Simulated scan of single mutants.
Amino acid sequence: MPRTWLTPVILPVLLALSACQTTPQETDLASTAEGAAERPPAVMPDDADPALWLIRDEDTTIYLFGTVHILKPGMTWFDEAVKDGFEASDELVIEMIKPDQAVMVKIVNDLAIDKSGISLRDKLAAEDRTHYEETLTRWTVPVAAFDALDPWFASVNLSMIPLMRSGYATDQGVEDALLSHAAARKMAVAGLETPEQQLGFFDNLPEDVQIRFLNFTVDTIDGAAEGMEQMVIEWANGNVDALGELMNAGLEDRVLYDTLLVNRNKSWADWVEQRMQQPGTIFLAVGAGHLAGESSLQALLAKKGLVAKRIEY
């Protein structure tokens, strides 16, 4: 198998995956449609102002920032309140700190390469396999390219193809920029999760869920770039509710929703609660999809008596 398919997208993939699963045609929930009808279409601003929140007590301050893990080059967002909050912070905390390539390849070999000896395509129902092979061919990907992978990792790789071809770059994400600024300041950096944990969320999904995930990615791949663009627009405009609608529409499978969003938010809410017991100023940056909707990190923090106040700028 070509090395390019063994090289993972070394970043949290929830937002990108939801982009592949969400297009205006597919978002058919009544509440979502009503909300979209009430809002004028958002457009990409010249200067992005993504949402930022503040959690504070007597001796602890946490800036809570929603990120997009991949962007197109040239987007301006690190200024005004975001820059001020970052520069006031002593430590940057992100979802995951990237390991070096050799370490990541080992993790992928351990978690994402199929151990059963059954080809990925042989795991698919006949109709799904035909559709899968036709889709790979249309996107000029060899039909055997993902045969050695678990279904979830094939879905991750496949989901990224239209985004990369539309100009998105895995080294242009918000976390990459924040890490660069942190390095320049010699700022402490920590991760909420390990690479093994992040990939494990997918790898531990039941195989039938992984296959449904892959089939859905195949079904919706043609709208992936458009869906991603719309999410970036909503993020850049700070439209949290609209972004939440897009994200939730892309995670209609309850197992996926709980595994990739709700359970992680619960864990992070516990982390924030514990961190508020220590003095200091933290810039906490997690995927924007975690900060929208009824199961958002802010909603879970509110249940703990911790109020995340949005900073208007």
Rank of each mutant, 00 (worst) to 15 (best):
T60D: 09
T61Q: 14
L64I: 11
L64C: 08
L64Y: 08
F65C: 08
T67I: 06
V68C: 13
V68K: 11
H69W: 05
I70C: 01
L71S: 04
M75W: 10
F78A: 06
F78P: 01
E80F: 09
K83Y: 03
D84S: 13
G85V: 04
A88Q: 14
A88G: 08
S89N: 09
E91F: 05
I94H: 04
I94F: 06
M96H: 04
K98L: 12
P99F: 01
V103C: 11
V105I: 15
V105R: 14
V105K: 14
V105E: 14
K106V: 00
V108L: 13
V108I: 15
D110S: 13
A112D: 07
A112M: 10
K115Q: 12
K115F: 00
I118W: 05
L120E: 04
R121S: 10
L124K: 11
L124S: 08
L124W: 10
E127R: 10
R129A: 02
R129P: 00
Y132F: 15
E133P: 01
E134Q: 15
E134L: 10
T135R: 10
T135G: 06
T137K: 15
W139F: 14
T140Q: 14
P142M: 03
V143K: 08
A144P: 00
A148P: 05
D150P: 00
P151A: 03
W152A: 02
N157M: 14
M160I: 06
M160W: 07
M160L: 12
I161F: 07
P162F: 03
P162G: 04
L163K: 02
M164Y: 11
G167Q: 08
Y168H: 03
D171R: 06
Q172G: 03
Q172M: 11
V174H: 05
V174R: 02
D176H: 11
A177I: 10
A177G: 06
A177E: 12
L179N: 09
M187F: 05
A188R: 12
V189F: 04
L192H: 03
P195T: 04
P195F: 01
Q197W: 10
Q198C: 10
G200F: 03
